[in-house]
Simulated assay, not measured.
Amino acid sequence: MLYAGIGSRNISKRAEEAIEALSRFLSYEGFVVRSGGARGSDSAFESGSRGEADIYRPEGATEESIDYAGRFADNFSHFKEYTKRLFGRNAQIILGADLKSRVDFVICYTETPDAGGTSHGIRIAKANGIKVYNLFNFEDFVSLESDLGLNFIDLYPKFDGVNHINVYSKGSTELGRFLSNFERTEINLPEGRFQSLEGYWYYLNCPDSEGREVLRGLYGYDAKRIGRELRATDWNNDASFKAKIKSAMYVKVCSNPLFYKKLCECKLPLKHYYLTENDKIDVPECDWIMEAWAVIRSHGLKRLR
């Protein structure tokens, strides 16, 4: 199958590496990429293609492709000649040099899909009924995996920090690891001092009022393991339990202003999943925790403004 790989020029190093990894993975799966040779996203798609990318450049734009591209740009007649050729190149990436050999789908990376050169390519694709996946959106990344019938198990860590933050003790980002319940960080709560949210979680769920005291000093998997040995339940849907955990989460970030600032400045959606050797395992039971972090982030943003 043939796909177009396009996107923003100014992207982070992490995003560039993630796109290159995806392009390489698709290349091994037999997909061929068309791109435009620009820096940033285009270069990342090309770098991962193992030398098999079909690259279109402005100097190769034809009058036909330029005229066609103009249908999807306002005030096109006022554009400089080179800009018109750039837009003509966009049309060729999506529809081929002859405008008759279209790609099967488009993968892009852009924070602004309604502005800039990438948006022009997106408009052409949609006008021709070609599906577009924006890697900046985590849901699009997941949909791409599903629609192609592939397993992105090795790519999720690459995109952790690019289109989402995995709140997980083994996550790829420092912020995601910090927000995990496993993280060792001292919190002072009405019930006393704890070394982790995980320890506090099992403390609240433990029926052994004396034995549970050991949980105050535990973090990581040890807190879960000992909590289970003490017959503490893993899950609790009681409203009062959730309220206490949410309060503890807020105390945790307030006690760590550096990470609170990082949380507030992060625009990416917060997710929680585990990765095994072959599968990504979602944990819907933790959705309320991700929602709580989002509320804390929003509240913090108001404080910072």
Rank of each mutant, 00 (worst) to 15 (best):
G199Y: 12
S180K: 06
K126D: 04
I187T: 09
T185G: 04
D114Y: 08
I107E: 00
M290W: 03
A248G: 05
G217Q: 12
L155S: 05
H164T: 07
S119D: 03
R212C: 11
A53W: 07
Y68P: 05
A294K: 00
S47F: 14
Y156V: 05
L197D: 01
D160C: 10
I153G: 02
P58D: 10
I124D: 04
F178L: 05
Y221C: 01
K100H: 10
H164K: 02
G117F: 07
S119I: 08
Y168Q: 06
R193P: 00
Y109M: 01
D222A: 15
F138M: 03
N188I: 15
F87W: 11
L179S: 03
S23D: 10
K131H: 15
K267W: 01
K252G: 00
F152W: 14
S196Q: 09
F241M: 12
S196K: 11
G36Y: 04
N137C: 06
V106D: 02
G51I: 15
A243R: 12
D287R: 05
I66D: 09
K242T: 13
D42A: 10
G88N: 05
I226K: 13
G217I: 15
G40M: 06
K302Q: 08
S119W: 08
R184A: 13
N237T: 07
E145Q: 12
S12H: 03
W288H: 02
N188W: 11
D279W: 08
V142I: 13
T233L: 09
L218M: 12
L99I: 07
F25Y: 13
C266M: 00
G37D: 06
I245Y: 06
L2N: 09
G161S: 07
N236V: 10
P113T: 07
K242V: 13
V251P: 02
R212M: 11
S49W: 02
S77H: 14
D282T: 07
Q195D: 12
G129I: 14
E145G: 02
D74A: 09
E229M: 15
A38R: 07
L304W: 05
T173D: 07
Q92D: 04
V33T: 12
H120R: 06
A248E: 03
A97L: 06
F159V: 11
D67V: 09
G5C: 06
V214L: 13
N256C: 04
R39S: 14
N236Y: 10
G7S: 01
S209K: 12
S101A: 09
G161M: 07
E186Y: 11
R231T: 11
S101H: 12
I245R: 04
P269T: 14
Y274T: 01
A44I: 11
K267V: 08
